[in-house]
């Protein structure tokens, strides 16, 4: 009899979980006047710079339980080719991770624990989410209840990305799984000339963490500069 009660309880829990999951749905987008659709789409491009840019941030990483750490991140990207180069180093200047993305991730340097399996891929996904227009089909545009502009992209085999631009021109980017579970949320603060002074990325689900990027420096650059890796750089000690 006890066993039956246990099974019944488990079944109820499973059904509740299933019900909650099946009830997950994306935020409702209210349509806008068709005449305004073009403006809405243009507004959704506000978060994404259209020329090659290089950012230097301090990145504070926080995990559940209060563990934190701070590193310096350098990110250079070219929106035209969707290429990214990313370097993480300690405040003391030691490069822990150096990778580029051009259709696929190429790791130039990764010291333990940055050489962990899948780390480079996950990290580049986060960087792309923050800096580049989503790679996906624009399926819907409109506004949320609070008047924020929103563009919804369906990303092949990768769920949905909502780009939300608020009335004050700050923005949020939300990434959902195929089952509409919120996986990532990017929030921007202290905007100046389309450059946020702070970006916060919250990762939900199995691996929870928060990245808080505080801007040190942002500048446009020539994409050729990235290709010129200094293989002939002097190795002397002078």
């Amino acid at each position: 009899m006890k066993a039956f009660a246990l099974y019944k309880r488990c079944f109820l829990i499973l059904m509740t979980v299933f019900f909650i999951i099946s009830c997950s749905r994306l935020p409702v987008i209210k349509p806008v006047d068709p005449a305004m659709a073009r403006d809405t789409m243009q507004r959704c491009h506000l978060p994404f710079l259209d020329i090659p840019y290089r950012f230097v941030h301090t990145i504070k990483v926080a995990f559940p339980g209060g563990r934190t750490g701070t590193v310096v991140g350098v990110t250079a990207f070219d929106p035209a080719t969707k290429t990214i180069q990313s370097v993480i180093m300690t405040i003391e200047g030691f490069v822990l991770f150096d990778a580029s993305y051009e259709k696929e991730v190429r790791v130039n340097r990764a010291v333990t624990p940055f050489n962990a399996e899948h780390f480079a891929g996950y990290m580049m996904d986060d960087v792309r989410l923050i800096f580049l227009t989503p790679d996906g089909r624009l399926s819907d545009t409109g506004v949320f209840e609070d008047g924020s502009t929103v563009c919804r992209y369906y990303v092949k085999q990768n769920g949905v990305i909502d780009v939300i631009v608020h009335k004050d021109n700050t923005w949020e980017i939300e990434r959902y799984s195929d089952s509409n579970e919120l996986l990532r949320k990017v929030t921007t603060f202290s905007l100046q000339d389309r450059i946020p002074g702070m970006v916060e990325l919250n990762a939900f689900g199995f691996r929870e963490y928060t990245l808080r990027l505080n801007l040190i420096n942002a500048e446009p650059f020539s994409p050729e500069a990235l290709q010129l890796r200094p293989d002939n750089a002097p190795e002397d000690d002078e």
Binding site: V61, G69, F114, Y209
Partner: peptide, 18 residues
């Protein structure tokens, strides 16, 4: 994303400060 917390990088960091 389990960085910052392992012994290796911390050791190297402090080693160089040393």
């Amino acid at each position: 994303m389990r960085f910052i917390t392992t012994k290796g990088s911390a050791k190297r960091e402090v080693l160089v400060v040393g």
